[in-house]
């Protein structure tokens, strides 16, 4: 009973003291300052340790997980990049094939599409190998074209593959004409990688920039296919012919897909043969 009374009294005194303190403020004394002076460094040290531990966790142990995550993300990025590269390649192939298809629909001949699978091993001769042969109806002598223009002529066939002599090879010759003036000549491959437009008479009007197209008179290449444009004209003081150089419209180093014309127009003189 006495304990309960004592406790009630103590609570009452405490409440009264706190009320008085709230009302009149804390009396000035050196105890708090001393306590603060002594305890603050410890609090500071404790705070430093806690914060240090937190930082250690966040910046070191947590980094181990971050590093793992980083590795994972790098792998994902690599896979995405690879996929992106493949998609870009597919997109480019799609553009090329679409152009080839559109071109195929514009020409009035049956064609066989083929992919370039190899090139001439020597650095002096210009041939390519494509993945279509006699098995698909390819035969020796057929003309080969792309949307950009004439590529060359089939010179050898196996059931699965064909070898094509590029128009820029020295052994190649295409009967051609200037589109603007209908001036005729023979386009031959130049050792430098372009064309020489030969046998053009001096009197003929040929200008730099003129388009050169196939004339269709050689019995191999149909008429009207692009060969390139005139890049230089020299009229020597002597001689019958001009020296005309032609820049090919086809980038022969980058040809990847071609069309082989399987039913080129036959000329009367060939039929007679």
């Amino acid at each position: 009973m006495a304990i309960i009374a004592g406790a009630v009294l103590l609570i009452a005194v405490n409440v009264i003291v706190v009320s008085v303190m709230v009302k009149y403020g804390q009396p000035e004394s050196g105890i708090e300052k001393t306590a603060l002076y002594i305890s603050a460094p410890f609090q500071n040290a404790f705070h430093f340790v806690v914060n240090g531990s937190k930082n250690l966790w966040r910046h070191y142990f947590f980094l181990v997980f971050a590093a793992r995550e980083n590795e994972q993300l790098k792998k994902t990025l690599q896979a995405v990049r690879e996929k992106n590269r493949r998609l870009a390649e597919i997109e480019l192939a799609n553009i090329r094939l679409r152009r080839l298809l559109e071109f195929r629909e514009t020409i009035p001949y049956a064609t066989i599409s083929a992919e370039v699978v190899g090139r001439d091993p020597s650095r002096w001769f210009k041939t390519i190998v494509v993945n279509k042969g006699t098995g698909k109806g390819v035969r020796k002598g057929l003309p080969v074209v792309t949307p950009e223009g004439i590529v060359g002529q089939v010179i050898e066939c196996t059931p699965g593959y064909s070898k094509i002599l590029l128009a820029i090879d020295q052994k190649s010759a295409v009967d051609a004409m200037i589109q603007r003036t209908r001036t005729r000549g023979i386009v031959e491959g130049d050792p430098g990688g372009g064309f020489n437009f030969k046998y053009v008479l001096r009197k003929e009007d040929v200008r730099v920039g003129d388009r050169v197209i196939s004339s269709g008179l050689d019995g191999v290449f149909p008429k009207g296919f692009d060969l390139g444009h005139v890049s230089g004209v020299v009229r020597p003081t002597a001689g019958m012919f001009q020296v005309v150089t032609v820049l090919p419209s086809v980038d022969f180093e980058k040809v990847e897909e071609v069309l082989i014309i399987s039913n080129p127009p036959a000329h009367a003189f060939m039929e007679e043969k």
């Binding site: 190899g118 001439d120 020597s122 002096w124 001769f125 210009k126 041939t127 190998v129 070898k163 002599l165």
Partner: peptide
Amino acid sequence: VMDGFSGA
């Protein structure tokens, strides 16, 4: 083989 591939 090279002769087969080459235009030479």
